[in-house]
Design a protein around this nucleic acid. Structure first.
Length: 243
DNA sequence: CGGTATGATTTACT
DNA sequence: AGTAAATCATACCG
């Protein structure tokens, strides 16, 4: 039936103690397959797990109640069997009725669980749709990286992960940011000149500090220029592609 | 309120 | 798979 499939797909009625994996898969599926799950999704997963737990405990309760009630009725019938003949067919019929009643109750449980999941999902999607600007600190870090790698502002996967961690955002958000930044910078370099100078100066200062520290440590290495090709905004081209 | 900045999504290309 | 470019939707600010 429909509800069962839905709950199964949502990881609610799947492997009972499978842990987050099923829920994570469900979350990934819910978000349309884009598997950028990591941070924001933990909240979603936690709530889904909660729903699943409630669902299972309730289901078990109903199951137990059904069994109890069945045995109770059986006992009653057995008692009655002393006064009047009771065919096995009648017993079967009674049990059938009871089970049907309880399964209809379970259906209600499934339905409300489904509703809860749907609400949770829509909230989750809404939260995703809402845009929040990154913190000042995060943009600071991202800009620092961008302008200090202006000649090749394409962070590797590891670099993205590190930036994501530093900024407490997801890796795909870092990718988005760099995508937007690259295109917007290229589109109007002039508008970003001030910002570029600012961050160039900032990294220069930190580099100077590093050099000073190195000198103080008597490490007379030649200061490896931190890749910032220099102030001229030499527009990056990704290997052979002219702007 | 209107304009701009900005994060996210979509589309197309390689 | 990763990116450019266009576009969408919202946040932010005067």
């Amino acid at each position: 039936m429909r509800l069962d499939n839905m709950l199964l797909a949502e990881g609610v009625s799947g492997p009972e103690k499978g842990g987050g994996s099923a829920a994570a898969a469900a979350a990934a599926a819910a978000s349309g397959g884009s598997s950028d799950n990591s941070i924001e999704h933990s909240d979603y997963r936690a709530k889904l797990t909660q729903i699943r737990q409630i669902y299972h405990t309730e289901l078990e309760k109903y199951e137990q109640a059904c069994n109890e009630f069945t045995t109770h009725v059986m006992n009653l019938l057995r008692e009655q069997s002393r006064t009047r003949p009771i065919s096995p067919k009648e017993i079967e019929r009674m049990v059938g009725i009871i089970h049907r009643k309880f399964s209809s109750i379970q259906m209600q449980l499934k339905q409300s669980t489904c509703e809860a999941v749907m609400i949770l999902r829509s909230r989750f999607l809404d939260a995703r749709r809402k845009r929040r600007n990154f913190s000042k600190q995060a943009t600071e870090i991202l800009n620092e990286y961008f302008y200090s790698h202006l000649s090749n502002p394409y962070p590797s996967e590891e670099a993205k992960e590190e930036l994501a961690k530093k900024c407490s955002i997801t890796v795909s958000q870092v990718s988005n940011w760099f995508g937007n930044k690259r295109i917007r910078y290229k589109k109007n370099i002039g508008k970003f000149q001030e910002e570029a100078n600012l961050y160039a100066a900032k990294t220069a200062v930190t580099a100077a500090h590093a050099v000073a520290a190195a000198v103080q440590n008597n490490q007379t290495n030649s200061p490896t220029t931190p890749n910032s090709g220099g102030y001229p905004p030499s527009c990056y081209q990704s290997d052979g592609r002219l702007q």
